[in-house]
Nucleic acid binder design. Structure first.
Lengths: 125, 125
DNA sequence: TGAAAAACGAGAATAGAATATCAATTTCAC
DNA sequence: GTGAAATTGATATTCTATTCTCGTTTTTCA
């Protein structure tokens, strides 16, 4: 049985209230504001469980550590700022992706990642 | 100065004559057919140099080891077969990718990866 | 309230790709 | 052909995100 703990509550709160995907480190740092001294192992344990239970999504983008976000968010893709290395959500998707497939191939899912500079870094430059 | 060696020739030949991106391991195994006993360190060294010199492209797709391919190939994306774990090239691209960007964001490049089953695995199933 | 089960935190251990090391071999310019 | 410089292959080492270990603490529920 799963126990309800201050640590897990804090981790969950951080994930669902974030406007963008976060790394385990970022989640740990943010959760530490509510639960002082929370350990990174606890964050990994909780995230792993939440991913298995389908509440949290694990996001792998080349070039940066894995990120995590609320799995309830609708289908979308990501933007990686090469300047500040932060990952952002992109709204919407594209049509015609299946047209890229050679005949005989079956598509199960797809990922789109855009690399560049976020608004903050563009204006700061 | 760079010396021309049997090993490098073999590695280069494997890369340019492959119909799809290969991993360092695959390249090593394939190159071993021309140069018996070629070591994995040599493959990594050669690939690293070729990437720096712009002849070879380093491809990072989540879930599989890095792959390498001829950098002279025109812009395209990738398909990962979740059954046989092989990576394939997809011809062409999509329009309107920049439309996904929030205002103020600057796109430098993009990646599209489709996951599914390749023709071989579909027909074998 | 008490006891069993689960979770915690700190730090050690793991794993796997990539790099470094180094003696032996190969390449190249002359 | 010769010697300096580069490369090779085997293996040790590094690196770092994640998991494991384990003694302690917290949660749950009768």
């Amino acid at each position: 049985m799963a126990y309800k703990t201050r640590q897990r509550d804090a981790i969950w709160q951080v994930v669902v209230s974030s406007a963008r995907p976060l790394t385990a480190q970022e989640i740990c740092a943010e959760a530490a504001k509510s639960v002082e001294g929370i350990g990174i192992a606890t964050v990994y344990r909780a995230l792993k469980q939440m991913v298995e239970e389908g509440q949290v999504r694990h996001i792998d983008v080349p070039g940066v550590q894995p990120h995590y976000e609320n799995a309830a968010l609708s289908h979308h893709h990501f933007f990686l700022c090469e300047e500040c290395k932060r990952l952002f959500d992109l709204a919407g998707c594209l049509r015609g992706i299946a047209n890229l497939l050679p005949s005989g191939y079956r598509m199960k899912r797809h990922e789109i990642v855009i690399y560049g500079e976020c608004a903050g870094c563009v204006s700061r430059a």
